[in-house]
């Protein structure tokens, strides 16, 4: 079983190695003569305004919360989908109830207007 994850391991090593090697070689060969102008942040050629750590709109957070809830739902859908063919109608009804209950939540959120971007 573990051998099939060897491919994943090779991918990880190559992806990390690629970044390290290319950036490392570039660092070895490029000239380094920094000036304050060169070190300033590039923003379409304009002088930058304020800090880049701006406070995000709180509305993003509710979308992130909804995302996590439906993310958990997907985690339950996977084992259901794997055995669906063997269990047939019973499994279908079970999952319909499961998704149906969550659908109420989505309708509630929709009704409350949190899905609208004001």
């Amino acid at each position: 079983m573990l051998d099939s994850y060897g491919t994943v391991g090779i991918f990880l090593v190559v992806s990390v190695g690629f970044v390290v090697v290319t950036l490392g070689i570039a660092r070895l060969f490029r000239p380094q003569r920094p000036t304050p102008q060169k070190l300033s942040t590039y923003e379409c050629g304009e002088p930058t305004v304020g800090s880049s750590w701006v406070q995000f709109n709180v509305r993003y957070y509710i979308f992130a919360l909804l995302f996590v809830i439906f993310d958990v739902e997907v985690a339950f859908l996977i084992p259901w989908a794997v055995v669906f063919k063997q269990l047939g109608l019973f499994a279908l009804v079970e999952m319909l109830i499961f998704v149906g209950i969550l659908l109420f939540g989505l309708l509630y959120a929709w009704k409350k207007g949190v899905l609208k971007w004001v």
Binding site: I62, L65, E73, L102, G105, L106
Partner: peptide, 16 residues
């Protein structure tokens, strides 16, 4: 399994 969906519903409504 079905209770999990109720739990998630509670979490969703609480978040909203």
């Amino acid at each position: 399994f079905e209770l999990v969906s109720v739990l998630l519903l509670v979490a969703l409504i609480g978040a909203v």
